[in-house]
Design a protein around this nucleic acid. Structure first.
Length: 915
RNA sequence: GGGCGGUUGGCUCAGGGGUAGAGCACUUCCUUGACAUGGAAGGGGUCACAGGUUCAAAUCCUGUACCGCCCA
């Protein structure tokens, strides 16, 4: 199972050989900086992550959500990268061919903005440079900075298929885009329309609905008088945007609104310009809003546009592409070319002068902002290319409804379906320079318009030469190209081997904010072009917020840089935290450095457990565990270990990363380190003293520790690689085995499931804890031995106590230890009860009578409370008749137990009272 | 306005009909040979509120309040 191809190319030994202690780690503290750097280099130099396609293996594939080339690694990337890497490493260890397709997105608007900003520093703008030169500049920028996020990803140890890094402007990728576009165009699904679109005056481009962020800001509601043409009165209209009134084409009222019924059909005079417009009735108007009368400005408001279409009203544009009022006949001259917010102020002043402003109220205005530059969106009528969605959406709805594509957590499918069922046509053109230019050419000679996958040499219709053909100036929405990501990166439209093996991909892991923006579009594009789903499971991870539950944002300066966190706590600690956050949580996650510190300490704990184990098993040749020679503690830890492996299988299957991480943590720290390692010390000493040399303790230590490292590897790749390399392993792993990442993921062995050992060990642990409790309560010095008497009334428990006597002696410093079934309790002693057992620690000189009484009384009260509760349940006839019999029996036996303990407490109190 | 999720110890969160859990913080003790980034013991919560279902509710149902997100 050694990875042959990688083994052949292995360069250098990643194990430090500078000390003669190369077999075990030498430092007390885990030096993760050194370890992470060394293994990162080793993995990459030996190209261990490169894609392998072995036809005998099952396949597992994931397409990385491509980060923007302008991006820096943020918490979301790090979280999502870890989640995917845990799965990829797990599947790799489980023997799959794993393809994790990495790459970057050209990110139209963002990148253009970054480069424009750079040019601004040099004192030039893109128009001075010209389109061609500008695009050259962007490419220069991309070459210089565009891959830095990929390098940042390496820091968290992600095992991308690094030989396949793609870019949405790669030659092969562009082919896919044009194939998709031309196909959709020829089928009539892409069309040109003059409609109201979201326009960003700063970016000077249209935006899709999803690129607009909605936000409420403090503003004003202006109540403006529109006088009736016939002089019979006035209609007061409420608006938040008085500067747009010049484009009004009607005033709308609700048809059932008694206040205004008489006005319907009459004309009113538009303030300032006195143009006449009709009063119309439309049930879209909310009677309770403002004055109940709404001005209708179809060219500058999305809802008004719909009303305008319904009533066949004209569309008067009064604001231009820069966000200034235009110099049309509808705009008064004093506002020609005046910026929109300035024009608002001047309009309000004018209205006041004319006595037409009835009232100004404070009002929270809902506003759309450009996602990229935060400029207030201006809805404008423009010519754009649209993708018709109805037909494309249908199969994409079906595959989610039929659960062929499953969202995890499931509830997000509702968000998706809601969007898809109410889908509107997608505006896919952008007035930018950086992007995929729309592949539509118009013949200047015959006006023939058509789409071409590559630049046409002549007009198809009139054979005019290429020089007569002009290409559309616009570029495609970045998301149009992202929508093809899972198959365009695998070679589509070519019929590649990768597509055959890895498509549909297995999972997609992403943030919920791009479910509609990206996930939905990949699904319908895949259904259209691949005739199948793009991925089976969509994992939606939570959002990492600041410590006080706010959204992290670079501009607000409250964002935590994951690279800083990796520097401070180590990649493994960060990954462990991300895994423990998981994807099943119902709530977003608050960032807590304390958590990272906890997992940093966990890494250190594992490291030091490793130092102990490796010292003990140095030179040991593992040959498996011999079940015939196991102690109770051996059986117990092997049981716990195999139960853990069983749980891990289930948790990973269900994407319960948080549960997997927590169980690994608790097993490592509590079961293995706190208990088994301590017991192993006793057993190793015994084995050494008796010279028996069965070596079973070493075998158990090796088995559990080596397996635990493999179990932890998907979450903590660095520390496990380092420790595993140094761990003696069975001959199953040849000496040149290149990396733990290719070792099989451990699976539970039913032969070691042992409920009996679990029960007995738990009992002994309770006894030990009780003795420790007594010692602390009565201030027995930690270094001193304490005499302990255990009186037991149950034969099985008696046997168990005798088996575990050594553990009790050593772990509770109980010596001399007297265990018997019938000895009479000593008079001056502290007492604790566990099950049928009474534990006495005679404290002749140390005993503090009032303290003992107080303690006994506290316990008496708590036992009495529990007895009362049990009695009240049992005395309820309904409980006995309706509760499951096993439950009733359990309560009854608990009551017996409690009664016995109460008796014991009473007798103790009697003794103390007598003294 | 519509939808989704949350409200559990001082903090961050698990749990999801049958006697409240973890980590951090807190108190006390311990520099014992893997680890003081450690070990041991302990204190602390009527599970937001109000109704309902049930033998039994933190858990299921209904409503209210507050917080967060998505969509309009």
């Amino acid at each position: 199972m050694a990875k042959s191809s990688a083994a052949d190319t292995t360069e250098g030994n990643p194990i430090k050989e500078d000390s003669n202690e190369a077999e075990k780690p030498s430092s007390n503290a885990f030096d993760w900086k050194e370890v992470e750097a060394r293994w990162t280099t080793y993995w990459h130099e030996n190209k261990l992550f490169n894609l392998e396609m072995n036809p005998d293996r099952p396949n597992f594939s994931v397409a990385l959500p491509p980060p923007n080339i302008t991006g820096n690694l943020h918490m979301g990337h790090a979280l999502n990268g870890t989640i995917q890497d845990v799965l990829i490493r797990l599947k790799r260890m489980q023997g799959y061919n794993v393809l994790w397709q990495p790459g970057t997105d050209h990110a139209g608007i963002s990148t253009q903005m970054v480069v424009e900003r750079q040019l601004k520093k040099e004192g030039i703008n893109r128009h001075q440079l010209g389109r061609e030169k500008f695009i050259e500049k962007v490419w220069q920028w991309r070459v210089q900075y565009g891959d830095s996020i990929m390098a940042q990803y390496k820091r968290i140890g992600v095992s991308f298929s690094w030989d396949r890094v793609a870019f949405t402007m790669d030659e092969s990728y562009v082919k896919a885009i044009y194939r998709a576009f031309v196909t959709l165009y020829k089928e009539g699904l892409i069309y040109r329309g003059n409609r109201i679109t979201n326009w960003c005056p700063r970016c000077a481009t249209s935006l899709s609905d999803l690129e607009v962020e909605h936000d409420e800001k403090k503003g004003h509601l202006y109540c403006i008088k529109y006088l009736l043409e016939d002089g019979s009165g006035e209609l007061v209209v409420a608006t938040t945007r008085p500067e747009s009134l010049y484009g009004d084409v009607a005033v709308a009222v609700h048809p059932e609104d008694d206040r205004y019924k008489a006005f319907i059909g009459k004309n009113v005079k538009l303030p300032i310009t006195n143009r006449l417009i009709p009063v119309i009735a439309d049930s879209y108007v909310e009677r309770e809003f403002g004055t109940g009368a709404l001005k209708i400005t179809p060219a500058h408001d999305v809802n008004d546009y719909e009303v305008g279409v319904r009533h066949k009203l004209p569309q008067l544009t009064v604001i231009d592409l820069k966000g200034n009022l235009n110099n049309s006949e509808y705009v008064p001259e004093f506002l020609h070319n005046v910026e929109r917010f300035d024009a608002r102020k001047q309009t309000v002043i004018k209205l006041e002068e004319l006595g037409l402003l009835q009232e100004t109220r404070d009002y929270n205005v809902g506003l759309g902002h450009c996602e990229r530059c935060q400029t207030v969106i201006e809805p404008l009528l423009t010519d754009q290319w649209y993708l018709s969605m109805k037909e494309l959406a249908q199969p994409a709805i079906e595959v989610v409804e039929e659960q062929r594509v499953q969202f995890v957590p499931e509830r997000y499918s509702a968000q998706y379906l809601d969007w898809m069922k109410n889908i509107r046509d997608w505006c896919i053109s952008r007035q930018l320079w950086w992007g995929h230019r729309i592949p539509i050419w118009t013949c200047q000679k015959c006006s023939h318009i058509d789409a071409y996958e590559s630049a046409p040499e002549s007009c198809e219709k009139c054979s005019a030469p290429a020089a007569e053909l002009t290409q559309d100036e616009d570029v495609l929405d970045t998301w149009f190209s992202s929508a093809l990501w899972p198959f365009a990166t695998l070679g589509w439209p070519e019929n590649s081997k990768e597509i055959k093996m890895f498509f549909p991909t297995t999972i997609l892991s992403t943030a919920r904010e791009i479910i509609n923006l990206w996930v939905a579009r990949m699904i319908f594009m895949s259904m259209k072009f691949m005739k199948t789903i793009p991925f089976k499971h969509v994992l939606i991870h939570p959002v990492i917020q600041t410590g006080d539950g706010k959204r992290m944002s670079k501009s607000k300066g409250n964002a935590v840089d994951p690279l800083d966190m990796i520097d401070t706590y180590g990649a493994d600690a960060n990954r462990f935290w991300f895994a423990s956050v998981g994807i099943k949580g119902d709530q977003d996650v608050r960032f807590r450095p304390e958590k990272l510190d906890e997992y940093k300490r966990f890494a250190n704990k594992l490291w030091n457990a490793g130092r102990f184990v490796l010292t003990q098993i140095e030179g040991f040749e593992p040959k498996g565990v011999n079940p015939a020679h196991l102690t109770l503690a051996d059986r117990w830890i092997l049981n716990r270990y195999n139960v853990l492996l069983d749980l891990l299988q289930m948790y990973f299957q269900d994407y319960d990363f948080d549960k997997a991480a927590n169980h690994l943590h608790d097993f490592t720290w509590s079961d293995f380190c706190d208990w088994y390692v301590e017991i192993a010390k006793i057993q190793l000493a015994q084995e050494a003293a008796s010279g028996e040399g069965t070596g079973q303790t070493k075998a158990v230590l090796q088995t559990v520790f080596e397996g635990l490292l493999r179990a932890l590897h998907p979450i903590m790749p660095f520390i496990t690689e380092e420790l595993w390399t140094k761990t003696p392993k069975s001959s199953y792993f040849p000496k040149d085995f290149v990396s733990i990442m290719f070792a099989p993921y451990p699976r539970p062995d039913e032969n070691f499931i042992d409920d009996d050992a679990d029960e007995k060990m738990e009992f002994l642990m309770r006894v030990i804890r009780s003795i420790r409790n007594i010692r602390q309560t009565y201030n027995v010095p930690a270094s001193a031995q304490a005499e302990v008497m255990i009186v037991c009334q149950d034969e099985d428990e008696m046997k168990c106590l005798l088996d575990g006597a050594t553990y009790i002696e050593r772990l509770a410093k109980a010596s001399p230890l007297d265990i018997s079934m019938d000895c009479s309790p000593p008079s001056m002693a502290a007492c604790e009860a566990v099950s049928s057992v009474n534990i006495y620690v005679p404290l002749a000189k140390l005993i503090d009578i009032p303290k003992s009484k107080e303690k006994l009384n506290v316990r008496k009260a708590s036992i009495e409370k529990e007895i009362a509760k049990a009695n009240s349940q049992l005395s309820n006839p309904d409980f006995k008749s309706k509760a499951p019999p096993a439950k009733v029996a359990k309560i009854e036996s608990e009551l017996n137990e409690l009664t016995r303990q109460l008796e014991s407490v009473h007798s103790q109190l009697k003794v103390l009272d007598a003294s």
